[in-house]
Amino acid sequence: MSGMVEKTGKATWLIHLGLIIGIGIVCFPIYLAFIASSVTQAELVRPPMPLLPGDQLVENYSRALFSGINAPVWRMLVNSMVMALGIAIGKIIISLMSAFAIVYFRFPFRALFFWLIFMTLMLPVEVRIVPTYVVVANFGMLNSYTGLILPLIASATATFLFRQFYMTVPDELTEAARVDGASPMRFFLDILLPMSRTNIAALFVILFIYGWNQYLWPLLMTTEPEMNTIVMGIKQMFPSGDDLTDWPLIMATALLAMLPPVLVVIFMQRLFIKGLVDTEK
């Protein structure tokens, strides 16, 4: 008996050791970034590379946040936040409603519209980026939030997901609402929307991160540093000529850029998992 317990104990230790090493490997680059953001440029470039935090933490972060290289980082964080929220919320609203139309209304060419939406799933942003750029430029929406958000706001994935969800809602519920005198919009707002809330939460997390991580589109269409988003802004911080790369500042910015998605995941994790695992019927 005792032998078995010991054996299990050893196995657990071994497993934990393996996991700790794994976590160490995954976290090491982030740790390095953190170290790099807490020392001076001179300390960083002098070998050996420092592995313990320095004393420049507050200076580096405040320098990044309030002055930055091209634009202050807080400004880029605000831009990214507006873009990510705009895309996530906009996508959710639009796909909720377009799925509602496709599932609950009979109109001419309904199937055609559904397949058109579905087909755009196969086209990533990059494929249509040049024509999109021309359109946005002609509308004079370069360097604006509208221009950042609008071209990315339609989502076939989310529409498809909500369509699948609506199709699992029993028809009798719709009929009960009709008998109760609910208009279609009333049914949508009072019944479908609350029933989809876990799906909405799950999608919000995914879409927020999608919007936050957009790189190519903001890179193309924001020419003023004031409109840069943070993910592309990091790249813009690298000097083009022979100037010195300000690593501590860039590392501080990178860590700041990671923070909001992490917070969204942490705070919405419970709802997120619930949304992926079960639907309340």
């Binding site: 029993p170 009798e172 519920l173 009929e175 009960a176 609402a177 009072d190 019944i191 609350p194 029933m195 309340e280 019927k281």
Partner: peptide, 10 residues
Amino acid sequence: VFQNYALYPH
């Protein structure tokens, strides 16, 4: 009154 009750679950 429906067969599956059709109560609003939320």
